[in-house]
Nucleic acid binder design. Structure first.
Lengths: 123, 123
DNA sequence: TGCTGTAGATACTTAAAAGTACCTATACAA
DNA sequence: TTGTATAGGTACTTTTAAGTATCTACAGCA
């Protein structure tokens, strides 16, 4: 796809963080390097295929680093690039906004939940 | 859809600003109230159907206000709610990040363009 | 010897998002 | 009287994103 044209900056940014998983993956990479399996366990609903696919795209966009340890069984670590870090600072604000927005809407009587790592649902 | 559960704040935020058009629409509503037609002209590629649909969803999420003037021909104005304004402050940063990211990538030899309202492509 | 964990790839299917086409109704201008 | 602008609605199709199932290869453990 040669020569992609955007009409506004946010369109370009959304091209990078859009979709169901990328923003979630990036938020988990905030402040820490994670192995593939650690990411997968941090985001239980994601499939191996989607995780790999999204990480590849983020790598191609220069947002995450992929470090391969040449050993068996394989070990691969993902971390944010400088560009990824600058983006993640804003993403973190979106994360905080989402949390307070949920709190606001819950106090309005809506039923929306944010699961913390602690309070798991045991149904 | 009763009882939606999110695992991380950014997931909830993306539920609101995700998709191809919403972030763009919101950025255009920054600092100004716009009529439907003004929005449509500001975002030439969007269709009437998508514009209306996305605005309805943003209204349901408490992000935009819809003010109907009971007159013929119809007049409808869209503006940001307080909640919309708090979200838009962050969205504006994503916009700026996108612009500088494009500049960065262009200096790297990639061909990506950001059209300002001035410099139209005359091919 | 067979099972688990590691990090993928690939073909295929399903679900969701976006786009197209065509419809309403009325005021105003040429 | 025909065309334009206003702000939509609705049925249908196409495109894109996401999900499912199954495959590789090797080390270490019981």
């Amino acid at each position: 796809m040669p020569d992609k044209t955007y009409n506004i900056g946010v369109e370009a940014t959304m091209d990078i963080i859009g979709g169901k998983w990328k923003s979630i993956i990036l938020c988990h990479l905030r402040q820490q390097t994670l192995r593939t399996g650690e990411l997968r366990r941090a985001i239980p609903q994601i499939t191996q295929k989607m995780l790999t696919q999204q990480l590849r795209e983020l790598e191609n966009d220069g947002i995450v680093n992929r470090k391969i340890y040449e050993q068996v069984p394989p070990k691969v670590e993902y971390s944010l690039t400088d560009r990824g870090n600058s983006l993640n600072a804003i993403l973190h604000q979106l994360c905080l906004w989402g949390e307070s927005n949920i709190a606001e809407r819950k106090s309005n009587g809506e039923t929306i939940n944010l699961l913390s790592e602690e309070q798991e649902v045991n149904s």
